[in-house]
Nucleic acid binder design. Structure first.
Length: 901
RNA sequence: GGGGAUUUAGCUCAGCUGGCUAGAGCGUACGAUUCACAUUCGUAAGGUCAUAGGUUCAAGCCCUAUAAUCCCCACCA
């Protein structure tokens, strides 16, 4: 026997993955490059009646390890991929790796510092080369982990965000945008991290609430409130609200302000931005270091004086405070002002929101810099138009509205980053400004050169790199190898599965870019998953020490258990807690399935030893139970057990249950209800297949049906638990090939009336079990027999009912009723219990009658309501009537029993 | 300030278009056991579905308020 008594994932998983990978099962069945076999000049792939299923992996950081979120990503995406592969689509799951510009840069800079070096010792190109080697060294780690999770992705198509074709595509788009006037260079305030020396997009800024003292300072004729007294040297105006009567007389005048570096003059302006109710209703304007002030400065044509430099130190404009760090300068300035009596009061508990670098936590300084910007107005408008036409279906639905709302308010996008690790911006600046006839900036793809010559003029490359999202926004295009000359049926993607928190950063930009480049939306559906929280619903973080490593769980419980566990209790877009219990329950299911297979294989072996391999067998003692066999041929058989015949109610019933299960799974997968699909499989396999059908097969054996139904279960579970299903498939004696390549099972055939009769058997068995447990004493099941009165269902299924209830005997009632009557409406059944015990059961019986009576009352109330009878659908009214009849019967029978006692 | 969610058993969550006598996993209690599986089997306890109104023959589900929790966007000096 090949089956050990329990399933050990680690014994199978690596070999199974290797078998899949080497067999080529991960590659799409239709080529990913154009095909023109009939030399028609057209790509044949568009003409075939082929179903394509394409999905890309949000590229994990090439430099890092996978975290639990990636575990969820693989569980979701790979389940989809395997499901559609079994369904017969040419399936392309494209893996990726992200150079993760800033993230990787931060890690690398730390290792540099640890070695006692600084980035400033090297020039940009050298740094780039060094990081490349660093990443190359680390890469592969994450790829191994994706394999451990069972990702059935097409490895040969792995796309790295710095691959040549990616850079090519990004440059092509950039050039097009440049020519279309969508790219401009602007000197604007940008979010700048003084530690990392780079600008950020708004979206990358981490706002934190902090107590920052609010100083009320004397300011010429005014008193005004500020949290940043050190920027006073950059003030070029003071503003009041135009409707503020208190300050009307000053508007338009120039005032003299006493300062720590001596008096200076500013103009008083009126602007709506000022809130009359905050502080004193007077605001100092520092255009170089505050976004609102910058905008006010634009409106009023104010001078811009930079007082903080890129390293976070005060400039010469700060006079004697020059060279100090911002925090230090603030203290010094406050002290000096206090000594001069300029500070009126201090609100120490004032809570303010301060921008921080999301990586190092340093305070972000708004900094005036020349950067490249994308004019997003048109791009956003086009995206909104397509979104409003519902060309993309969102899961959860509400994200569509949120996205449109975001796009409507989108500001121009700063795409310049001052980090060496990234794709170089392909722009070159004229070296000699005196050559006035030539443009200042030109586009050129030769970014490997620092200097180029064009029309005899020298140009120097801009040292900045692209914001990672600028290149990432091309992901569906570059992964599927779409091009203007060769569109591909794999674009648009069928689905974009990714984290809900990058809806704006990534999804929005992919849509804008996809439309701009290809004219089509880049994907037909979007599924957004939420955060995986810890067991208590808290965000996982290193500082809290509650991070769960998916690889630990895989090692402990197996890959399938992890996948099943993480899909449980999870729905689109929701941040949900992770519980190890769910993984344990997944592990148990794998083991259960293993043992189900072990049992069936042993039955098959025994059957073959008996030389009766051909057909269903019925033990001689049950021969009278066999009904006329219905031969059913299966047109869409998965493997070898193509012929089966159902021979009793239990067999019809399991076919019906499996059919329902298949239908349910299909619906769930269509609507991305993964947790429900797993739940359905769990209860079908465990509560129905194992607990009822297999138990019944210990009495009646139907080998072809056992084979067929096991195959059905294995294939249906395979998308969610790929390893154990493949391990079993390989160990079964009659299956061939790999399960990953099988076809999704078709519907099973069965007799519905017979199937429904089995429900009655289940009800009878449950009632017997429940009543026996409620009787006083232990081991009741072994003590009392079961009596039936003219009940053909029980008579025909004597042996089965006996096996399931464990009662010692089942006999026909001869003579007057005796013992304890079971509370079943349509069956006359008695437990052969002595008088004494029946009496002891009296209270329980009375309670039972009362409970049924309450249910009956509720039903009667409903029927007495004329509105219900008139307005409710007829079938419901009939159902109620039937229920009333049934309950009445049950009560009267129980009352008879009670009287006898 | 603008927007999005969540609130159902001890815990984590289902309950999709109203028909519910509200479900699952884990946990708990009680009982079983020599074989497929203790990673097992059986039985049970446990919920005025956040609160208050409303619509409807019928509300966990729809509407209107309220409360609590969480998230995103904008940012007030």
């Amino acid at each position: 026997m090949k089956f050990a008594s329990s399933y050990e994932p680690s014994q199978f998983e690596p070999d199974i993955y290797a078998a899949w990978e080497t067999s080529g099962a991960f590659a799409p069945t239709t080529p990913t490059v154009p095909v023109d076999d009939d030399a028609s000049g057209h790509d044949d792939r568009f003409e075939e009646q082929e179903k394509y299923y394409s999905i890309v992996m949000p590229p994990p950081n090439a430099n890092g390890n996978l975290h639990i979120g990636h575990g969820l990503v693989v569980a979701l995406e790979d389940s989809l991929t395997r499901y559609y592969r079994l369904k017969g689509s040419s399936t392309w799951y494209i893996p990726g790796a992200d150079h993760a510009g800033f993230e990787t840069w931060v890690v690398y800079e730390k290792t540099l510092e640890a070695q006692g070096h600084s980035r400033f010792e090297y020039d940009r190109d050298e740094l780039y080369a060094r990081v490349w080697d660093f990443v190359a060294m680390q890469r592969g780690n994450m790829e191994l982990q994706l394999r451990a999770l069972g990702a059935s992705c097409s490895w040969k198509d792995l796309t790295f965000t710095l691959d040549e074709n990616v850079i090519d595509r990004v440059y092509t788009t950039f050039e097009k945008m440049w020519n279309d006037g969508l790219i401009y260079r602007g000197k604007k305030l940008v979010n700048f991290c003084p530690k990392h020396q780079t600008a950020f997009a708004d979206i990358e800024v981490d706002w934190k609430e902090e107590k920052t003292p609010l100083y009320y300072i004397k300011y010429g004729p005014f008193v005004l409130a500020t949290t940043r007294p050190e920027t006073k040297f950059g003030d070029t105006a003071v503003a009041v609200n135009p409707n503020d009567e208190r300050y009307q007389e000053w508007v338009g005048k120039t005032i003299t302000v006493e300062g720590v570096n001596g008096p200076f003059q500013v103009e008083v302006i009126a602007d709506d931005m000022v809130d009359m109710n905050f502080g004193t209703g007077v605001v100092k304007i520092t255009p170089a270091h505050d976004f609102n002030d910058w905008e006010a400065g634009q409106r009023h044509n104010l001078r811009v004086v930079q007082v903080i430099d890129e390293t976070g130190h005060m400039t010469e404009a700060a006079g004697r405070f020059a060279g100090m760090e911002v925090a230090e300068a603030r203290k010094a300035v406050v002290k000096a002002m206090d000594e001069m009596g300029l500070i009126v009061k201090v609100d120490k508990d004032y809570v303010n929101k301060v921008p921080h670098c999301y990586k190092c936590g340093a305070v972000i300084e708004p900094m005036l810099k020349e950067q490249w910007f994308v004019d997003v107005k048109k791009l956003a408008a086009t995206a909104i138009e397509h979104l409003n036409r519902n060309e993309i279906k969102f899961y959860p639905e509400n994200k569509q509205k949120i996205l449109v709302n975001y796009l409507e308010n989108l500001k121009d996008w700063n795409i310049s980053r001052q980090i060496p690790w990234g794709i170089a911006i392909p722009m070159f600046r004229k070296a000699d400004p005196s050559a006035t006839d030539e443009p200042d900036w030109i586009f050129d793809r030769r970014t490997h050169l620092k200097e180029i010559e064009k029309s005899g003029v020298k140009y120097v490359r801009d040292e900045d790199t692209f914001d990672t999202w600028f290149s990432s926004s091309h992901w569906p295009i570059v992964c599927t190898d779409w091009s203007e000359d060769n569109p591909t049926p794999y674009y648009p993607l069928n689905v974009m599965e990714t984290a809900g928190d990058i809806l704006f950063a990534w999804v929005a930009r992919m849509i804008m870019m996809g439309l701009y480049v290809t004219g089509e939306v880049p994907f037909k559906e979007v599924y957004l998953h939420g955060l995986v929280l810890d067991a208590h619903g808290k965000k996982m973080s290193k500082s809290k020490g509650n991070v769960i490593n998916p690889m630990d769980l895989v090692a402990k419980y197996g890959s399938d258990a992890f996948r099943l566990g993480i899909l449980r209790g999870r729905s689109a877009g929701m941040n949900q807690a992770f519980s190890e219990n769910s993984v344990i329950s997944g592990r148990n299911l794998c083991n259960k399935l293993w043992n189900i297979s072990r049992l069936i294989q042993s039955i098959v072996d025994e059957d073959e030893d008996n030389g009766e391999a051909a057909d269903a067998t019925i033990p001689a003692e049950h021969e009278n139970l066999a009904r006329a066999a219905r031969s059913v041929s299966e047109g869409h058989a998965a493997s070898t057990a193509s012929h089966y015949t159902t021979l009793n109610q239990g067999e019809d019933w399991i076919c019906r249950e499996l059919d329902n299960c298949l239908e349910q799974i299909e619906q769930d997968m269509k609507s991305y209800r993964f947790a429900e699909a797993v739940e359905t499989l769990y209860s079908t396999i465990w509560d129905r297949y194992a607990d009822w059908f297999l138990e019944s097969q210990k009495i009646y054996r139907n080998v072809p049906l056992l084979k067929k139904t096991l195959e059905t279960i294995l294939i249906t579970l395979h998308p969610f638990a790929p390893f154990v299903t493949e391990a079993i498939w390989q160990n079964l004696s009659w299956t061939t090939g790999l399960i990953i390549n099988q076809q999704w099972p078709g519907k099973l055939k069965f007799d519905p009336i017979s199937a429904e009769q089995f429900e009655n058997i289940r009800i009878i068995v449950s009632e017997v079990r429940g009543t026996l447990q409620a009787l006083p004493g232990t081991n009741n099941a072994k003590k009392y027999g079961l009596l039936y009165d003219k009940d053909s269902l029980v008579e025909d299924n004597k042996f089965l009912v006996r096996a399931l209830t464990k009662v010692p005997t089942i006999n026909s009632l001869d003579g007057a009723p005796r013992g304890l009557r079971l509370a079943l409406a349509n069956h006359e059944l008695y437990l052969d219990v002595p008088e004494k015990i029946v009496t002891a059961y009296k209270d329980a019986l009375t309670e039972r009658i009362l409970a049924v009576g309450r249910e009956l009352d509720a039903l009667n109330m409903r029927m007495m309501n004329p509105n219900y009878v008139d307005r409710a659908p007829a079938h419901l009214v009939k159902e109620t009537r039937d229920q009333i009849k049934e309950k009445q019967q049950l009560i009267s029978r129980l009352k008879v029993q009670l009287k006898i006692i």
